[in-house]
Design a protein around this nucleic acid. Structure first.
Lengths: 337, 337
DNA sequence: CTGAAAGCGCTTACAG
DNA sequence: CTGAAAGCGCTTACAG
């Protein structure tokens, strides 16, 4: 493999001159630049990223720390990772995958080995143990997720609170006065899942404000159990005419549960949901809904991280990505009773 | 951040001595080693991976080239990526994500920038354009997928042919003489999807050998269309009593399609399938089946790659991971007619 | 067994 | 505008 020295020799200039044209610095005579470019092409030269990293102490790679969490909906993870890599490479960065059951250890090692310029943490929860090594080293990082206590670390996430309000308003605007709120299992809230908590809190508050009665149902785990639980709930004689869903498994199974009990949407039930965009696509979910925005969230995260790398001392920033309501005619208008 | 020089000074030895203990070389007096270890602990030193890479010309990272393919079942991708990272880090390697619509370009750049010691290509198809830059540079790489022409590149994949034979045998052993073969859309075969082709070829051959009539149904794309197509097929009066599935969307929708037409498994239909392990888990698929083995395949791929990096001149190897049949009582015994 | 020296392939002041 | 020199943080022969 050719080195910068080979190119310099071929072009009859100093290595620093080659470096100058490589880095697009001015102050190189057009003619010299041309000779260097020719030498580069002739030798098929390409700069050694590692050597450059050592000289500049910038690796031009960001680490993405994925939390290993069987319980959650993993299919969406690939979308986040690919989007991350795409967004990063647009800005000249590469992405290194950091997986380890011991997330804090992975973070610590990544920082210590100086293999990355910054970190993106996926699926951040409240009291996330991965935050400590970051604050300790004052290392550039951004959280995807919005824990209550961010310890001065930048964070970005979909605005789940606003999403909940959008959905509740949509039901209330259509004249509904009560809704079944199908939500995640209790464990998820206890585990500090920030999006689940923010959605539920906002949903309750907005429902109260709009005079919508919320009947909460915590879903079990596992497709069959979910389907059965939904069926039982739908069959209840005093069940509300509307369903508000924040639970990917439930959103996926609801069409089947509705069919099980012979209900049509929106004739028998109005349904709104907030769920993963991947899930919606995979199951072709037919509900008016707010969907996660992996590309938007990830793009913001990468922007924030590069800003942070550029200016480590700037004030910490938290960014909520505004949710969008996608209409799919799953809500019927009810006359106020 | 402390450097090796700081440690050497602290311990009162030469930098080369620190390097020796760092790399576990013998020939360091126990006492010296102890002093060095103490200095390392005191300074919280950790070797700079980039500098080491430059000195050794081994980056200790492998690149994974993911092909961006909306049509396929992406949810499984995350499992492959995480498994890859886990397997790599067990061996002291990191994983860099290489995503680019231009796969060949991504490969070329990764090789040129010397950011990785080797490459793993995901979802390889026949005539895959990413192979050329690899053979051209004689760069260590392994394919996940088994294209007809491997150009001397190592490859590993689940043995889809053996999987097909296992399933066909299972039906034939149970006395079935005919089966509906629900397979992928024609485009996938035309696109050179190696697993689809190998499964279909082996299924046909084994079915012929075992006297099992195969009625082929190429599934459409999209959950609703798939479900409808399956329902139509099941309702056909002359349809076989058995169903052989190789199509993830169909496997996922089949339980619902069966319910749509009021069929029980295995009473009304015997079903066997080969599908993604992630899919099986996500939908809790109740079929006797062969499942993809992401962890096994990925682990083998990483092993092969590290072997290749260690010995670039060794003969190319192709490894088929043996499939396992998981029994779920979805096949009924039929008396020979 | 330990240490001084050269080198990995770059970049970046700094003279000229 | 160009080039010689030092340095980034390691490793690896090679003397001693």
């Amino acid at each position: 493999m050719a080195t910068i020295g080979d190119v310099a020799r071929e072009a009859g200039v100093a290595r620093s001159t080659v470096s100058a044209v490589l880095n697009g610095r001015k102050l190189v005579l057009p003619d010299t630049r041309r000779r260097v470019d020719e030498a580069i092409a002739k030798l098929n030269y390409s700069v050694n990223a590692g050597a450059r990293a050592l000289a500049t102490s910038r690796t031009m790679t960001i680490g993405v720390v994925v939390r290993f969490h069987q319980a959650e909906f993993s299919p969406a993870l690939a979308t986040y990772l690919v989007a991350m890599s795409d967004a990063a490479s647009e800005r000249g960065y590469s992405v290194m995958l950091l997986t380890d059951v011991d997330g804090a250890g992975a973070v610590r090692r990544a920082i210590a080995g100086r293999r990355v310029d910054g970190l993106v943490l996926l699926s951040v929860v409240d009291e996330d143990p991965r935050l400590e090594p970051i604050t300790e080293a004052r290392f550039p990082a951004v959280l995807i997720g919005m824990p209550l206590e961010r310890h001065g670390i930048d964070a970005v996430d979909l605005d789940f609170g606003a999403g909940a309000r959008l959905l509740v308003d949509h039901l209330a605007d259509a004249g509904h006065r009560a809704a079944t709120f199908v939500r995640w299992p209790d464990e998820l809230y206890r585990a500090g899942s920030t999006y689940a908590i923010r959605f539920a809190d906002a949903a309750r508050e907005q429902a109260a404000a709009r005079g919508l009665d919320l009947v909460e149902v915590a879903c079990p785990v596992g497709p069959d159990q979910v389907r059965r639980a939904l069926g039982d709930e739908l069959r209840r004689p005093d069940a509300p005419q509307a369903v508000l869903v924040h639970n990917d498994a439930a959103a996926a199974m609801l069409p089947f549960a509705l069919r099980d009990v012979g209900f049509e949407v929106p004739a028998d039930r109005s349904v709104v949901s907030l769920h993963s965009a991947d899930l919606a696509h995979l199951y072709a979910l037919p509900f008016t809904s707010v969907e996660s925005e992996p590309e938007g969230v990830v793009r913001r995260a990468v922007e924030l991280l590069l800003d942070r790398i550029a200016d480590p001392a700037a004030d910490p920033v938290s960014r909520l990505v505004p949710p969008r309501l996608v209409h799919r005619d799953s809500v019927a208008f009810r006359r106020p009773t």
